[in-house]
Structures are given as structure tokens and as C-alpha cells.
Design a binder for these strands. Structure first.
Length: 321
DNA sequence: AAGACGAAAGTGGTTGA
DNA sequence: TCAACAACTTTCGTCTT
């Protein structure tokens, strides 16, 4: 994988009746372009990323109000109770006797044994299914709010399923494990989303999700490539409506910085933001530190610090003024 | 009036005894 | 488990455009 490259279809214009859907909801422009690498549509005029949320107007029924939480908890917790105590387990018990207390003949006994085995399997199966069903709901919700492409959702689903099968979800909230799975999927597929972005659409704490994420990595032996600041460039650039040459410039800066070994231990989003800032100056497509910081999910100060560092260490010749 | 800059104090997470 | 530590954030005053 070399430098990230936008191969975009300019003036992308789908035909006929679905036209309304392909207008930018912000600037009403029709100049929507598609970035196949990220699986996103981007408005070429105002630079906004049109997530799937903006395109498909699917119902978003979940609120974060206390009442909603109440409702959810009432649907959630009885599940385990039902399965545990009130499931089929009371119907076929462990005794090898019939309803009159007589011993069963051997043939009959084997039969019962088989029933019991299946009943237990069915119970486990159904609990996994129920868990998965709920989790997939959550996954879809979070993923579409983040505007994640399909392949990430699938990767996340696979990770989650493995986690359930290994019994890693027990004792943890489904939502936090789902969020962790999504984060892991993003990292693996190099679709950069910060942990904070994902947590934002969740009602569990950042801490929980981070812990679950580490757990998933350890228990499932997931290999995750280390976060590369360059991966953040296209997204930040697109959100700011910057041209390809700025992004290319930013990527070059980051590559040099990496070679110099001054990127270790630094927040990749911050580095990318700083590189974008420098590139925007060099290419004369100025954006303020504040704007860049905002879309990168870091503060102005961090952008500034990284930017000063990069300029100093790499001796980037800045234009006057 | 807005942007850039830097200092200083505070925060959350990692590391090593 | 605690303390030290580095990176990042928040806040604020000052200078520049």
C-alpha cells in the first residue's frame, strides 16, 4: 500500500428519479463523488462526507433519554432469567424416573438422555442467537451512525461472533463489546475512526470499550496493524473539502516524519491534522487550526504542537506571512 | 474580530517498582 | 497498588492579521 490515493469519478451523476437522494444535503450541489477506498460518498463542493445515514433515511428510533434506557433494560435483563430458570430445563430433569417415580428401562433412559443433550444444546444455541440478534442491531445502528462501509460491519460482526462463542461477552454489556468489535474492525481495515468517535454513539463509557477492545485482541489473537497517521489524511481532507494535492502533500510530510522517528507515541490523528495544516499552507488552501482540529478530533493546541514539531524537525520551508 | 501562539495547570492512561 | 511520567486537554493572556 503506497500513498493513499483518491481515485474518484468526477461529476458523478446518477440518472433519473433517484436524483434527490444524490444531492448534497448541505450545499444542494450535485457534484457528489465516490471514494471507493473508504466506501464513502463525498460532496466535491462543500467537502462533507455523506454517510449512509445521510443517504438512506432509515428510522433512528433509539433515543438516549432515561425513559428509553428504562425500556431497554426491561427488555434486556429478563432474557437471562428466562433462559436460566424458566427454560426447558425444568421440564426434563436429571432423574431417571418417570412421572410415577419408577425407574426407566435402559432403552427409554438413553432416549431421555438424548433429549436432555439436545435440550441443553438448543438452550445454548438460542441464547447465542438472541445475543447475536441484539448485538447485530446495535452494530448496525452504531455503524450507520458512523457511516461505516459494509465490509467493516461484516468484519465487526465476525469478531463479535467469535467473542460470543468464546464466552467473552458474559458479564459485559453487549454494547461495549460491539463497540470494541467495531473499533477493532476499523483498525484492521484501516478505516480510521477514533475510539472516542465510536464511544460517542454508545451509552457505555470509553473505559469499558477500551477494556473490551484489549480483551478482544488478547483472547481472539487479533492482529491489528499499528495506527498510521497517513490513513487519517483522506478523511480529514475530505471533511475539509481539500484537494488531492493537499492530501498528497500531507502524506509526504507524514512519511518523512515517520522516517525521522518523531511520530512514535503521538496521537496519529493529531499528527495527521498537523500535516494537513502544513500542507494547506503550502498549497495555499488555508484552513484554520481550529477547523482542522475539530474534524480530526483533537484540540487546536495539539495541532499546533505537532505542527511546530514537524516544521522544526523536517525543516519544512513555509511560505511567508 | 478572528486567528495564531505559548504558558500553565489539569486529566486519563501507561509503566515500573 | 502506588507514584512517576508523557501526551493531550482546558483555559487564558498576548500578539498578529
Amino acid at each position: 500500500m503506497g500513498t493513499p490515493e483518491f481515485r474518484l469519478k468526477r461529476n458523478f451523476r446518477p440518472s433519473s428519479e433517484s436524483e434527490e437522494l444524490f444531492r448534497c444535503p448541505v450545499c444542494k450541489g450535485t457534484n457528489i463523488i465516490y471514494d471507493p477506498e473508504r466506501g464513502q460518498y463525498v460532496c466535491a463542493d462543500c467537502g462533507i462526507v455523506l454517510s449512509e445515514k445521510a443517504v438512506d433515511q432509515g428510522p433512528e428510533w433509539r433515543a438516549f433519554t432515561p425513559e428509553e434506557r428504562e425500556k431497554r433494560s426491561r427488555v434486556g435483563s429478563p432474557l437471562t432469567q428466562t433462559v436460566h430458570d424458566k427454560g426447558l430445563s425444568t421440564i426434563i430433569d436429571w432423574r431417571d424416573r418417570d412421572a410415577f417415580g419408577r425407574h426407566l428401562e435402559p432403552r427409554r433412559r438413553l432416549e431421555i438422555l438424548r433429549w436432555r443433550k439436545w435440550q441443553i444444546r438448543a438452550r445454548i444455541q438460542s441464547s447465542i442467537d438472541r445475543n447475536l440478534a441484539q448485538a447485530m442491531n446495535e452494530l448496525d445502528r452504531i455503524a450507520s451512525q458512523l457511516g461505516l462501509p459494509r465490509n467493516v460491519r461484516e468484519e465487526a460482526a465476525v469478531i463479535y461472533r467469535k467473542a460470543v462463542e468464546k464466552g467473552l461477552v458474559r458479564g459485559r454489556s453487549i454494547e461495549s463489546v460491539v463497540a470494541a468489535a467495531i473499533y477493532a474492525a476499523c483498525r484492521r481495515l484501516k478505516i480510521p475512526r477514533t475510539l472516542d468517535e465510536i464511544v460517542k454513539y454508545t451509552k457505555v463509557g470509553r473505559k469499558d470499550v477500551a477494556r473490551c477492545y484489549r480483551l478482544l485482541l488478547r483472547e481472539l489473537e487479533l492482529r491489528v496493524p499499528i495506527a498510521d497517521p497517513i490513513d487519517y489524511v483522506p478523511r480529514i481532507g475530505a471533511l475539509l473539502g481539500l484537494s488531492g494535492s493537499v492530501m498528497k502533500r500531507a502524506a509526504e510530510i507524514l512519511k518523512k516524519a515517520e522516517e525521522k522517528g518523531i511520530t512514535a507515541g503521538k496521537d496519529p490523528a493529531g499528527l495527521a491534522a498537523a500535516a494537513i495544516y502544513i500542507a494547506s499552507l503550502l498549497e495555499d488552501e488555508r484552513r484554520t487550526q481550529k477547523e482542522i482540529a475539530q474534524v480530526a478530533g483533537v484540540t487546536e493546541v495539539t495541532v499546533r504542537n505537532r505542527y511546530k514539531e514537524l516544521v522544526r524537525e523536517l525543516r519544512v520551508p513555509l511560505p511567508p506571512q
